[in-house]
Design a protein around this nucleic acid. Sequence first.
DNA 1: GTTGATCTTGTGATCGCTAACAATGGGCCG
DNA 2: CGGCCCATTGTTAGCGATCACAAGATCAAC
Lengths: 336, 336
Amino acid sequence: MDVRPTRSPAMTDVARLAGVSHQTVSRVLNDHPNVREQTRLRVRAAIAELGYRPNRAARALVTGRSQLIGVVAQNSTLYGPASLLAAFEQAAAEAGFAVSVGSVGRLDRESIAGAVERHLDQRVAGLVVIAPVASADDALEDMPDGVPLVTVDGDPARPHALVTVDQAAGAKLATDRLLAAGHRTVWHVSGPVDWYDAAGRIVGWRAALEAAGAEVPPLVPGDWSAASGYDAGQMLARMPEVTAVFAANDHQALGLLRAFSERGRRVPQDVSVIGFDDVPEAAFFIPPLTTIRPAFDAVAHAGLDLLLAQITGVSTGSERVVIAPVLVDRASVAPA
Amino acid sequence: MDVRPTRSPAMTDVARLAGVSHQTVSRVLNDHPNVREQTRLRVRAAIAELGYRPNRAARALVTGRSQLIGVVAQNSTLYGPASLLAAFEQAAAEAGFAVSVGSVGRLDRESIAGAVERHLDQRVAGLVVIAPVASADDALEDMPDGVPLVTVDGDPARPHALVTVDQAAGAKLATDRLLAAGHRTVWHVSGPVDWYDAAGRIVGWRAALEAAGAEVPPLVPGDWSAASGYDAGQMLARMPEVTAVFAANDHQALGLLRAFSERGRRVPQDVSVIGFDDVPEAAFFIPPLTTIRPAFDAVAHAGLDLLLAQITGVSTGSERVVIAPVLVDRASVAPA
DNA sequence: GTTGATCTTGTGATCGCTAACAATGGGCCG
DNA sequence: CGGCCCATTGTTAGCGATCACAAGATCAAC
């Protein structure tokens, strides 16, 4: 008897123990219908006894498909992407898939292409790209066909499967809320304009203003960071006519809040502010921030559904899902 | 000639094109030394021409090791874990590994065990568990041997490879800073006490107080959330004697700030506050928050190094690395 | 009791790669 | 010039699963 450092049991080991062929074990594992109940139980018992665990690599080799889904996202501690990723992993786990992340430092074409490459190397079953900027879409142009792909927050004009938050609707919600409070117009501190998210919010903001017949003030550009919100606030605080600001995200809103506070403009008495994202801390800003909440878990679930549909061949991969955000009213808005 | 839907090229295809055997292709791919330079070039050219991409599943099957590293983390949009994950993926990518995430809703034994199982199913080459609570460690007890494992922020007493931030040192830094500003003592709003991070910060805080001969006030427990900081602040603000508070993280500090502001206690004139984490927005709190910055990317790199050492067999897996945090001075501390 | 259909199980080939070993050829030494 | 060593390349055998096909068992119907 040679006792070697026990390698983990393979299908044949289970088969031998259960007194059947390896193929029957395979059938049990894959819930094949034509297996006698008694046999099935015997095999199950053998599996449990040995602590057998199917070798995914072997399966992937023969089927050509792994149980891995790749997610490409920006290397990001931004609240939005982080929430998306978490929600997505949760949903994927329920469906029996693992999620491999490929975060990229910047969302330029090269970085994205690199991350996609790394995933294709792993023979992922499908790919989710959180691609909020145009350059990311470019990188997807030369994706090999046949790889299930879903874009999140990508170019709404692309012919790919896509899940997005309805940015424009959210922006409209915010703008209308401020207008309804009696403000003559609403200023907007935007995100980086090459992000679709930012662009959509700008569109919605402008549309709401125009629909209400309000003047459209110049756009104040930002870059999602609290710092850029602060800078914008430093400027806006000097203009007495500014009484309502819609910030493209909550962090920028935080910067705004601080700038206004520094310059003695009270929120909401002097200036009303609305943000976007509903980060967990938003309720504890000074004052508590009224904001727009995108349903990240709905986005994640929708994205996974679309992807699984493609993986299983049910779908051709051109559906799109748009998730409507909601307004969360807190204390940063007051009548003009 | 049968022209079938072109399957992706395999090693033999490359071999045929280059006029060598598949084994030689394999050698080139794995940087084997004994290959003539000219041959190597021919093979490389063939690889490029076909757009060949090695099949990881096949390789994993024969070597028994994948190029996948599993990370188990809390389903978390908490800044700390999110940063860690991002930094970790970056480091892993550089080393040619992909990262599969398994986020868990709660850090109880069952959830962790489940996530670990899912990863073992994928035959990961190694596992990183961000396990800041005792229950997580329990789950690791019955890990099969032989799987390289590194714990991040886990139980310092465990005999496993471990990377932690020196929580106590950070807490001491904060406490000393407040003491040095002339405060008689420092109150502490802690994180959940079953988290090692929180426990370590409590230890450091208490030690610093005792070393300075200062009175140790009762501990105010929190749960990392801004809400818990707010609640704590509501209480502390009623006590005139409270002039210095060390919050276990920045979000709790934010809650404190808001509670103090509501109750008319000015920060830093009436009360000084220090946080922990240095979240990107901390500079834009009102006032800008003095805080402790743990070097997340250093943690991630150290963790990966430890893991790779185990994977390559260089290490036995009992090393530990402790990362020292630094104090970031801003505007939430003033003399008593 | 045979026939044919259906259920159940087994056999062998195969996926794409690496490990182990064998074979070839050139250079160097005595 | 024969022999030995080393560099280089090829051959063969798996890794552990699925797939395609075949074979035996079972059962209903005639």
